[in-house]
Amino acid sequence: MKPGWLSSVAGAIAFASMVVPVQAATVQITMENLVISPAEASVEVGDTVEWINKDVFAHTATAGNGDFDVNLPAKKSGMMVVKKAGTVEYYCRFHPNMKATLKVVP
Rank of each mutant, 00 (worst) to 15 (best):
M1H: 14
K2G: 05
K2D: 11
P3Q: 12
W5M: 15
W5A: 15
W5I: 08
L6E: 13
S8A: 15
V9K: 13
G11K: 11
G11M: 13
A12T: 08
A12Y: 10
I13D: 02
I13A: 10
I13L: 14
A14L: 13
A14Y: 07
F15N: 07
F15P: 00
F15S: 10
A16E: 06
A16Q: 07
V19G: 04
V20K: 13
V20W: 07
V20Q: 12
P21G: 01
V22S: 14
Q23P: 01
A24N: 03
A24P: 01
A25V: 05
T26L: 10
T26A: 09
V27K: 05
Q28K: 15
I29E: 01
M31E: 03
M31P: 00
N33Y: 08
S37E: 09
S37P: 01
P38E: 02
A39Y: 04
E40S: 13
E40M: 10
E40F: 07
A41D: 01
S42A: 11
E44Q: 11
V45A: 03
G46L: 03
G46Q: 05
D47Y: 00
D47M: 03
T48E: 02
T48K: 10
W51N: 03
K54A: 05
V56D: 15
A58N: 12
H59I: 03
H59P: 06
A61L: 08
A61F: 02
A63V: 01
G64T: 05
G66M: 04
D67R: 09
F68M: 09
D69N: 15
D69G: 10
D69C: 12
V70L: 15
N71L: 11
S77M: 07
S77Q: 08
M79S: 14
M80L: 15
V81Q: 14
V81D: 02
K84G: 03
G86S: 06
T87D: 08
T87G: 08
V88H: 15
E89M: 13
E89V: 08
Y91E: 06
C92R: 06
R93G: 07
F94M: 13
P96R: 15
N97K: 13
N97M: 09
T101P: 02
T101N: 09
L102H: 00
K103N: 10
K103L: 03
V105Y: 06
V105M: 09
